[in-house]
């Protein structure tokens, strides 16, 4: 199984340790993983701002980097969803369609494709799980609180396997954190208020860490926590699953 590691641009630049944890976690499971060096960005920031028509070069570049792999794995629900929903290229329609099917967010890859049953990780802390909306509602990584349907959660089932980890229950299970791409600066007031409320829910449950599958949400929450000089930290789920 030949795996292409798709690292979102902002993770590459600001959170290399998350990418390293993702790579190590996949390698620990005995997988052959490579990181195509010419990758940049999936184009989501432009598309969500209404400039999808400008994303063609990003799509072409993405296809050139990733079309040869069996699976493409990404430690971000949001970027994965963008590729799944919006990767199109007039010059490479077959490749684009194939990539849309074989791109996976990290936790769904671990639970659905390689069906991980045991994780050798230890993280003796109280943890709250913030699900990114794109991961949860877009990729359906967890059941959505709006629906009348049986509960499940792929990231939660992985966290439950981690030694010493105590997962808290939030008052609002799947409320959006307010990051929302360019929303976070265009609608600064509401974005920050949503983030503060999200942080407060975790703090009410007495967490040491807020984890999640998307560094974009966590970057926003972390920015608020640090401004508040809070002792609560953010950590990507790959880092927890790779801990100890």
């Amino acid at each position: 199984m030949n795996i292409g590691l798709f690292i979102p641009c902002y993770v590459d630049q600001f959170y290399p340790h998350v990418a390293i944890a993702t790579l190590q976690l996949l390698e620990k499971s005995g997988l052959k993983v490579s990181y195509p060096l010419q990758q940049t960005c999936c184009g989501q920031p432009m598309a969500n701002s209404g400039f999808e028509h400008l994303t063609n070069p990003c799509s072409t570049n993405f296809i050139e980097n990733f079309s040869t792999f069996d699976y493409i794995v990404c430690p971000s629900g949001s970027c994965t969803l963008h590729i799944k929903d919006h990767l199109h290229d007039e010059k490479h329609p077959v490749e684009a369609a194939s990539i849309r099917k074989k791109v996976y967010e990290l936790t769904e890859f671990l639970t659905d494709v390689i069906q991980l049953k045991k994780i050798k990780a230890r993280f003796p802390h109280k943890v709250g799980l913030h699900q990114s909306c794109h991961g949860q509602r877009g990729l359906k990584l967890s059941q959505m609180s709006e629906l009348v349907a049986p509960a499940f959660s792929k990231p939660e089932s992985l966290l439950q396997m981690v030694n010493g980890l105590e997962l808290v229950t939030l008052d609002r299970k799947d409320e959006c954190c307010g990051f929302g791409g360019t929303f976070c600066v265009n609608e600064e007031a509401v974005s920050v208020k949503m983030g503060k409320d999200r942080v407060a829910d975790h703090i009410r449950q007495g967490v040491d860490y807020i984890t999640g599958g998307d560094m974009s949400c966590l970057m926003h929450l972390d920015g608020i926590l640090r401004r508040q000089k809070s002792s609560v930290k953010t950590i990507h789920i790959a880092e927890i699953l790779n801990a100890g």
Binding site: N48, S49, G50, C133, H134, R137, G138, M144, E146, D174, C176, G178, F179, G180, G181, T182, F183, N186, E187, V190, S191, M194
Partner: peptide, 8 residues
């Protein structure tokens, strides 16, 4: 644009 596209 007054939305995070959260999908709820």
């Amino acid at each position: 644009f007054a939305s995070t596209l959260c999908g709820s």
